[in-house]
Simulated scan of single mutants.
Amino acid sequence: MRIDIEDLHIGYAGRTVVAGAHLVAVEGEITGLVGPNGSGKSSLLRAVYRHLQPTAGRVLLGGTDLSELPPLQSARHVAALPQERGSDFELTVREVVAMGRTPYKRAFAGEDATDRDIVAKVLSDVGMDGCAGRRFTALSGGERQRVLLARAFAQDPDVLVLDEPTNHLDVRHQVELLALLRAQCRTTLVSLHDLNAAASVCDRLHVLHAGAVVASGTPRDVLTPELMADVFGVRAAVVDHPLTGDPLIAFDHRAPADAEAAMAVESRG
């Protein structure tokens, strides 16, 4: 199911954080949002999973304005893994994941065989099937991340919205999670700080800077040395990854592209 974001404006606390954003997440593809801290990525994603109300513009889900759909119906289509993640669940891992089945249940309805099969599968997919009986609060940050991703998968959505899903994960689990996203073949809108991960996993990228989309296209088209300097304030070379052939960004960690530009980027973050 395709996502179209049209002339989106978002503001709160007297400040505009997204200004006139236009972007598309094509059905079945992974669409990435990248940009410096404070560029509007999380706010834009919150509008897609209806945590924030835009001040102008609209989000279209399969051609239908998302704001016109009842919350229960939109929850059957869009699942989110936000940055602000609950840590106070006094529930088992299995119970947390089973919450993803809520949009399909009537009030007070119990689990059925389909629910149990889906919960078991998604726990296995994220490598947490051996922890189903553990308390969520007893898990590490990375384990919680994988459980909450399993909950989003259990929702069986058409669209996944993921805000920094690789946070708290070690390298192996980052690679496994990104491979799992590729295997899902769902419309996925994801924000990533790791530009090399974005170049590897995303079909298309949108670059946000100061609340505006400043570049869109394939990772190879978008992630150029010039953009690294202009948007992120760093010196970088873009080469071919020796194992995959994907664009690989090699950063100069000794000095920014321009000291004043780098300070400006940092102050906006």
Rank of each mutant, 00 (worst) to 15 (best):
E143L: 07
E143Q: 15
E143V: 11
R144I: 01
R144W: 07
Q145Y: 02
Q145T: 10
R146I: 05
V147L: 03
V147E: 01
A152C: 00
A152T: 03
F153R: 01
A154W: 02
A154Y: 00
A154N: 03
Q155D: 10
Q155M: 13
P157V: 03
P157I: 03
P157A: 00
D158P: 05
V159E: 11
L160V: 09
L160N: 12
L160P: 05
L160C: 04
V161I: 11
V161K: 04
L162G: 04
L162R: 00
L162I: 08
L162F: 08
D163K: 03
E164H: 10
E164V: 10
T166S: 09
N167I: 07
H168Q: 03
L169A: 01
D170N: 01
D170H: 00
D170P: 01
D170A: 00
V171E: 08
R172G: 07
H173Y: 15
Q174I: 00
E176D: 15
A179Q: 14
A179S: 15
L180C: 07
L180A: 07
L181R: 07
R182E: 14
R182D: 07
A183N: 13
A183L: 11
A183T: 13
Q184C: 11
Q184Y: 06
C185I: 05
C185H: 12
R186N: 04
T187N: 05
T188P: 06
L189V: 13
L189M: 12
V190K: 09
V190L: 09
V190A: 05
H193M: 03
H193C: 07
D194T: 05
D194V: 09
D194Q: 08
D194E: 10
L195Y: 01
L195C: 11
L195V: 14
N196V: 01
N196Q: 00
A197S: 06
A198Q: 00
A198V: 01
A198H: 01
A198R: 00
A199P: 07
S200H: 15
S200C: 05
V201L: 13
D203N: 15
D203M: 08
D203G: 14
R204Y: 14
H206P: 11
H206L: 07
H206E: 04
V207M: 14
V207K: 13
L208C: 01
H209S: 15
A210T: 08
A210G: 13
A210W: 09
G211I: 06
G211V: 11
G211S: 12
V214P: 13
V214L: 10
A215S: 10
A215Q: 04
S216Q: 12
S216W: 11
T218S: 14
T218G: 07
P219I: 06
P219S: 01
R220I: 11
V222G: 12
T224P: 05
P225I: 05
P225C: 09
E226P: 12
E226M: 11
L227P: 14
L227Q: 14
L227S: 09
V231P: 12
F232K: 09
G233D: 09
G233W: 10
V234N: 09
V234L: 10
V234I: 13
R235D: 13
R235W: 08
A237D: 15
A237P: 06
V238S: 02
V238T: 06
V239R: 14
V239F: 08
V239Y: 06
